[in-house]
Structures are given as C-alpha cells and as structure tokens.
Design a protein around this nucleic acid. Sequence first.
DNA 1: TGGCAATTTCCTGTTT
DNA 2: GAAACAGGAAATTGCC
Length: 374
Amino acid sequence: MVHTSPVHSLCDDSSIFCDNIDLGFYDMDYQSSKPALQPMKFESLDDESMSYECLQPMNNDQILPQKKSLPSTEMQSNLLSWITKHPKNWTSSEVLDWVYYVAGKLEVDFCRFRGEAFQNMTGAKLCQLSSVDFERLVPEYGMKLFDLFHELLRGANFSKPDFFNEAPMLSGLPMQQMETNETKYEPKFDGTMLSSFEQQMRTYTIGDREYDFDPNMFPEVQDEGYNTTTGSGKVTRRPPGRPPKKPRQSVSSEDGSDGEYSPTQNRGRRPGQSAKGNHLWEFIRDILKNSMYCPRLIKWEDRKDGVFRFVQSEAVAAMWGRKKNNPGMTYEKLSRAMRFSRSAGYFAEVPKDGKYPKKLCFKFGPKAFGWMED
DNA sequence: TGGCAATTTCCTGTTT
DNA sequence: GAAACAGGAAATTGCC
C-alpha cells in the first residue's frame, strides 16, 4: 500500500521508512497561499490504504501546518493538539509540542536548540513573554520563535479536516475567534499514529551529535524524599528501595494548571500510552527500517542475526519519549525497558564473542518479528 | 474488579 | 572517572 508523506526532501523513495503506526498528521489546517509539493509515496507495512497531502515547502516566514487528511477518526495524539487551540489555552505540553514543531520546521541543530527551556510553561505564560524572554530561554533561536509565535497569534486560520464529521465547523475562523469554540472542539487522534512527520522533523535535525541537555536551563524539580542534592548543594543519598506510594494528585501541568512537577507523581505509563501496536521492540524495529534514522541514530551490526547498535542513544530515547508522550525519557530508561523486553523474549543477549561491540548493542529476540524484511 | 503485560522511574552495584 | 550495563523494587496504565 502507499502513503504520501511530508518528508519529501529528507529521504529517497527507495529506502523510505513508513511504518503503520508512525504516520499521524495534523487534525487541523492553517491556510497558506503557497503551492504544495508533489507527495512522495511510501510503502507501508499495514494493509490499510492511506494517503496524505504533502507539506508545502518551508520557509522561515511560513511555519504553519498545511492541510492533511487523516485515515482515522481516533487520532488522539496530544502532540498536535496545540493546532486546535488558541495559544493562550495551550497546556505546557502543547507549548513544548509547538516549540519542537517549529524547531523541526526550521531544521535547527538540536544540539544547540534549547526547547526544553519552555518546559512547564503554559500557553498563557508564553503569550506574556517578550522577545527578550524568548531570547533568554533559547539564545540562538529565541527571536525566531518569538516572531513565529506572534505571527501565529496574528493571522492563522483554522479549517475543519475532512475526517471530523462530528466536529463543529471551524473553517476560516481566525484564531483569535477560536478560543470560544475550542472547548467544544475535541479532535480525535489515534494515539498509535502519533509522531510521524512531527517526530521525523524533530529528529531529522538532531545531526551527528547527541542531545545537548543543559539541566541548568530548567527549574529545580520538586522531589519530596528523592532529592539527591540539598539546597546547599550537598549530596544526600535516598534510602534504598522504593518509597511508599503517595496519594495521586490530579494531573498538574499537563492540564494547563500551574501545578508543580513532581517525579513521584509522574511514574509509570501515562494516559494515552497504550502499548497496543506501540511496543518498544516495534519502535526499534521500525526506526531500523527507516533510512532517516538508520544508520545515523541506530544501525545494524548484523542484520541477519538481528544485532543492532545505538549510534545516538539519547536521540533515540528522545524519539521514544516523544512517541510515548514522555519528554523525560532517557537512554538509561529506554535501555532498562529493553532489558525487560529481553527477558520477555523481544530482545536477546548479544553474543559476547567479540564479534560485536560490547556497548549499546542489542539483538532481536525470538518474539520479535518483521525486522528481517525490508 | 483483579490480574497481567509492558513499561517507567529510581536506585545500587558492576563492568568497560 | 565516566559511561554503559545489569537488575531489583515499586509504581502506573491499558487490556482482558
């Protein structure tokens, strides 16, 4: 079957990746006057026939999503929910989604990009930021982000996507008028189809280096009983084992409130992180099949044996985090999950006969399938 | 509603 | 000494 994709300039026809779970597109469209490029064709693994309109050529003055159609009415990806709202109603997650969306569009170097500086910032707060604030948060790209954000505030129009039969008609509504409607409008995404272009664009520009994460960019995390440093900077050690369960509070920053982030309330799978069709081994398999990521981020050591190696481990972890709506994902966590998957049979021990590197190497196990085929 | 799968998070200790 | 590996423990969500 055939898909079309927006990544027209990123890879060639013969080696394009397009898995059946990773092709989610925008639910809403902004209006643009620029002509679209010819769509590219993608071979997919599934049987459903889908087609997408291609993104228009980008320039720095027109960083707005273009019209797409979605194959499913179940699209629930909050990755793109910002598209449906006035920015002042964005949650902190949606702010980050937008920031990374723009970063991807601009093809910025992720090693220098500090998008995480917008972590825990709601849309309302974002609207209050000055250009100086933007520059302070993201020194290199702050001004551009500021310009684009205010361009978005000024002129974007919405129109209703074809597949939203049940949604209120919003075509042509100026964004400023959206806010009264947006609470009624609940676009449906398919959680299994998130990322796609969004993810691909973000990861495409990761480049040849690892993520350059600067913890000093972010506010101190509240972590009762887990702090490894005290206010004086003195390192303390938390007691061994897991602390007792704390009563769960209502979701904090995710819903746009100003609740403080606490890792102790943020563990385990998150809402919408359905494992169905979204397993770690499948994700790994699929990026290994994608020439955009393989061999740049992950590569085969021995395809016949199913042995592969992480080249940009943190970048792959970030991709996995994006896919699972978990910006806190790291390679350490991802590798822990892979070790669990290994015990479950999705991965296997890498032979320690010196044939393969000792680090960052994994192997598909007996329960994994589909990695051998192109 | 309970059990289970599949993580996620945090940790300590070991190996490279 | 740093990075990666290994695995225990406790937690979560989704599915059956």
